[in-house]
C-alpha cells in the first residue's frame, strides 16, 4: 500500500491541501503510524507529476500560501483499479521473528524458549490491553474501534500460535537439535 494510493483515497472525498490530508488520515486511522508532512508533500508532487492529481487552487488568507489539490480523471481511474484488486495475503512477519528467536534459543542454548514465549505473551497481552482500553473508552469513534480490532485480531493470532508452540516445545527441540 503506497502513500500515493492512500492520498488518492483521501482526495476522493473532496479536494484538500497537504496538512488537511494528513489530518484526515490520522483521524481515520488512529492506530496507523501518523503520516509525516514531508511524506505527504512528496507524494502529492509525485501524483501531480503522474497526472493523477492536480492543483485545485492556491489561497493565502493572511497566513502562508496553501495549495489545494484535487483528483484528476486518471487519478480516480487508478484509484478505482486499486480498490478493485484484492490485497495480496502477505506473510505476517511478527510471528516469523518470534519463531526465528525460539529456534535460535533452542539451537544456541542461550536462554529458555518457554520463558521467552511467556515474555512474548506478556508483551503481546500488554499491547492488547492498551488497544482494548482504546476501543472501550465511552464514545470511542467506530473507526478507532475497528482499527483497534484489526490489530487485536492479529495479535491474537500471534498469541494463539505462541500457545500452540509453547505446548510443543519439547518436540521442536528434538527436531532442531537432531537436525
Amino acid at each position: 500500500m503506497s502513500t500515493g494510493n492512500v492520498l488518492l483515497g483521501l482526495l476522493a472525498a473532496g479536494p484538500g491541501h497537504g496538512y488537511d490530508l494528513k489530518r484526515r488520515h490520522d483521524e481515520r486511522f488512529p492506530e496507523a503510524r501518523p503520516l509525516a508532512y514531508g511524506q505527504v508533500y512528496t507524494s502529492l508532487q509525485r501524483l501531480v507529476r503522474d497526472g493523477l492529481a492536480e492543483v485545485d487552487a492556491t489561497e493565502s488568507d493572511g497566513g502562508p500560501e496553501r495549495t489545494t489539490y484535487r483528483l484528476t480523471e486518471r487519478g480516480s481511474l487508478t484509484l478505482r483499479t486499486w480498490l478493485g484488486e484484492p490485497v495480496p495475503p502477505a506473510p505476517v512477519s511478527a510471528a516469523n521473528e518470534i519463531f526465528a528467536k525460539v529456534t535460535a534459543i533452542i539451537a544456541s542454548g542461550f536462554g529458555d524458549p518457554a520463558a521467552f514465549l511467556r515474555l512474548q505473551r506478556a508483551a503481546h497481552l500488554a499491547r492488547m490491553r492498551e488497544l482494548t482500553a482504546v476501543k472501550t473508552v465511552a464514545g470511542a469513534p467506530l473507526s478507532a474501534v475497528l482499527s483497534a480490532d484489526y490489530a487485536l485480531t492479529h495479535l491474537d493470532a500471534d498469541l494463539r500460535w505462541m500457545d500452540n508452540a509453547a505446548q510443543r516445545l519439547g518436540a521442536l527441540a528434538e527436531e532442531v537439535t537432531s537436525a
Binding site: L125, M128, T132, T136, L159
Partner: peptide, 30 residues
C-alpha cells in the same frame, strides 16, 4: 464491555476465566 464497565463503576473485582486472549485483554492482570 458491559461487564468491565459495570465492575469498574462499582469497584467490583472480576475473576475472568477464558481461553481467549482478546477477552483476557479486558483484564488488568493475567
Amino acid at each position: 464491555t458491559a461487564l468491565v464497565h459495570a465492575a469498574r463503576e462499582s469497584g467490583t473485582s472480576v475473576l475472568l476465566v477464558t481461553h481467549d486472549a482478546q477477552i483476557a485483554a479486558y483484564a488488568d492482570r493475567e
